[in-house]
Design a protein around this nucleic acid. Structure first.
Lengths: 198, 198
DNA sequence: TACCGTACCTAACGTACGTTCGTTATGTAA
DNA sequence: TTACATAACGAACGTACGTTAGGTACGGTA
């Protein structure tokens, strides 16, 4: 499945452990609601020690979002390449998108909710690549329309609707809840295909 | 249309002006990223003066979310009552939901993004009523399924998908952008109806 | 054995936070 | 004129913030 920020199994480096703890903390209390001291406490360190691994709190947030975008772009690329034809490709892309938002739920959530906590320069870097990600979905829809298999009134709007719908999964999904990630992905794929098919 | 927190036209009371400025500020920088001094500056007051109108910063956030839920519940009630039959009712509810998220964009955004900044007691109050709102949509879907006009694999999941999709509008909608609120609402209604119809 | 980089520590810096206090100016009713 | 309510003020409280400086223990390498 989608790679998380770090390999979960091997012995993680200190920087990786910090990023993972920060993801959980930022998700729970938000970037501005989390302090370096709280983050350090979760790692049984002192706040000052964090500065050996990261230059600033902002750099930690940016690293999280940057790695998450790496995974998103690589994952959707793999998904699209694994299928043929607009319909199968959109299915694969949507499926990946949903599964990413359950597997890397917290990272994915932060990638949307904490954009406003980025400095201007970091925000630009993140937004550029997020646009790239969105363009993939617009492209899939457009080629399906050209091929005559999809019927959508507005490609841009539909892409946005699909993405925000799946992105929303990260806000309510609960591990061990009623539905498995696979079941959710399957149903989301069906709903979306039904609504875009000619 | 959906009532905003305060009447926009008449002379607003100080408390109303504070809430409106807080909505904009919290939306831009988040609750924890906004200080009472910054909020006061936006209103050309001193931070201390805010405490004449509100007991605490938390009370300001809660007031915003509480009023927003008032408007949401009242609005969806009106929408549903204005139509007959599961299909027309769902159309009306979705339409209202989308328009609320363009008209009261910032309030709506905060109602989702700043839940985690509420104290435990305030969170409980808000969540209880948000559940009530969600139940309306589940009820509409379920009665459509019973009537044989809808076909959905999982009512709960579909309701969640619909709501988060429309809620997402508040994250990207831009006043004066390419599409009017009405156009967005119309298209969202069509996409959703297409995906739930038998 | 001497040294060096790694990974942490304690202590402190200056700043900003939410909030409280006592005070003041203005308007209104008795 | 007195009395009170309203709505604001400046100053200060104690606490917490992000960050920096300087020091220490340790494991490996020359």
């Amino acid at each position: 499945m989608a790679a998380t920020i770090v390999a979960t199994h091997e012995r993680a480096t200190a920087a990786e452990r910090i990023l993972r703890a920060a993801v959980v903390l930022f998700r729970e209390r938000g970037y501005h609601g989390s302090s370096m001291r709280t983050l350090a406490r979760a790692l049984r360190m002192e706040a000052a020690s964090l500065y050996y691994h990261f230059r600033s709190k902002q750099e930690i947030l940016f690293a999280i979002l940057d790695h998450t975008l790496d995974d998103l772009l690589a994952g959707v690329g793999r998904a699209v390449a694994s299928a043929d034809g607009p319909e199968a490709r959109l299915r694969a892309a949507v499926r990946f998108h949903v599964l990413f938002h359950t597997d890397s739920q917290h990272e994915a959530f932060l990638s949307h909710s904490e954009l406003r906590s980025l400095t201007q320069g970091n925000l630009r870097l993140v937004l550029t690549r997020r646009d790239e990600y969105e363009r993939v979905f617009r492209g899939l829809l457009a080629s399906g329309v050209r091929a005559g298999v999809f019927q959508v009134a507005d490609v841009r709007l539909t892409a946005m609707a699909i993405l925000t719908m799946c992105t929303g999964v990260a806000t309510w999904f609960a591990d061990g809840g009623r539905l498995s990630p696979e079941a959710i992905a399957d149903r989301y794929v069906e709903m979306i295909m039904k609504s875009v098919k000619r």
